[in-house]
């Protein structure tokens, strides 16, 4: 049986105390909430933190508020299932929940959290393996090795951003609340990420993501298309989150964010711009989707072939745009 390595387990009483614990232990500590991402990685010895700082129990991270306008604040420790069951959230934020609904499996959504899915580790076929397997290839840049096994000559790690909710949150213009030693700050969700498969989060090592804030929809309509082998369980091998705002037949706002085709959620403004200012005709959608696919740079480190994934970006962007446009 695969088992966890030993660690010291800490249970802070508040997010601020958690940031203090992170500060105390430098890089040797990891936050854990639902554990669905971290614990398998520890069992495979991809990560062996000496200290786990548990935050899943903190009431401060579990609030779920939806304002009359429809804006929502979801504590980072809210489980994905709690979000899915929340009546007001279902009413006001169907776009975000569309992405939540396709995360993994029911049992994992019962444990996995809003914050955890935003911060889910980047994935790679050369990285998400046991220690024995990785030792057979001499490890990789993301853990214990020098070389990126998917792009050996590259000076960086190309592990894949695999969150379903991050592209959607960015498309919706969401922000993240962070607690740090110097207090709170609120940043766009997009700025949580760095374009590096290894150091994929742009948070300070002592910061704790405390909440996700989704703005009121104010007429924005959205859709999420996820490409994967099976109808459940699988991480995306490419995904497209689209948010659109229409003024009559004319698009006056559009954000397109791709998932699983880069080391961070890849917003493609040049594709979105091809839709803004015009009507949503086949030609415009085709051009925007083509541009999105051009910018996607999947590599051979997930399920299914990477040329196919790149090509499929066009299909899923088209489908997401049409789906979003068709929604009230």
């Amino acid at each position: 049986m695969l088992r966890l390595p030993v660690f010291s387990y800490l249970r802070p009483g508040s997010p601020v105390e958690a940031t203090q614990m992170l500060a105390d232990h430098g890089g040797r500590a990891k936050l854990v909430a639902g554990g669905t991402d971290l614990l398998p990685k520890m069992k495979r010895r991809q990560l062996a933190p000496e200290v786990l700082v548990a935050i899943g129990h903190l009431d401060a991270l579990r609030q779920l508020e939806v304002s009359p306008s429809g804006a929502a604040t979801l504590g980072a420790g809210t489980t994905l299932s709690q979000a899915l069951r929340h009546p007001a959230l279902r009413e006001q934020q169907p776009g975000y929940l569309e992405a939540v609904r396709v995360v993994s499996t029911p049992a994992l959504r019962n444990a996995g959290t809003v914050g955890g899915n935003l911060c889910v580790d980047t994935r790679c076929n050369y990285y998400d393996m046991t220690e024995e397997w990785r030792s057979a290839i001499g490890f990789c840049r993301k853990a214990g090795g020098e070389v990126c096994r998917v792009a050996a000559s590259s000076p960086r790690c190309w592990a894949v951003s695999s969150s379903d909710t991050a592209p959607m949150a960015i498309a919706l213009g969401a922000t993240a609340l962070l607690a740090g030693p110097d207090g709170m700050r609120e940043v766009p969700v997009a700025s949580l990420y760095a374009d590096d498969g290894a150091a994929y989060l742009a948070l300070a090592a002592t910061e704790v993501l405390t909440a996700l804030r989704l703005p009121a929809s104010e007429g924005w309509r959205s859709a999420y298309q996820k490409l994967r082998r099976r109808a459940s369980m699988d991480f995306p091998v490419a995904s497209a989150a689209v948010a659109l705002h229409l003024d009559g037949p004319v698009v006056d706002g559009c954000r397109i964010v791709l998932g699983a085709v880069a080391s961070h959620p890849l917003e493609v403004p040049s594709a979105a711009d091809l839709l803004v200012g015009g009507e949503l005709d086949d030609d415009a959608i085709d051009r925007a989707a083509t541009e999105a696919a051009r910018l996607a740079k999947p590599l051979d480190n997930t399920d299914l072939s990477f040329p196919w994934r790149k090509r499929m970006v066009k299909v899923i962007v088209e489908r997401a745009v049409r789906q979003a446009a068709g929604r009230a």
């Binding site: 554990g35 669905t36 548990a54 049992a107 019962n110």
Partner: peptide, 10 residues
């Protein structure tokens, strides 16, 4: 009451 995976719960 929730279905959970016991292999991923401390």
């Amino acid at each position: 009451g929730d279905q959970k995976l016991s292999c991923l719960l401390l």
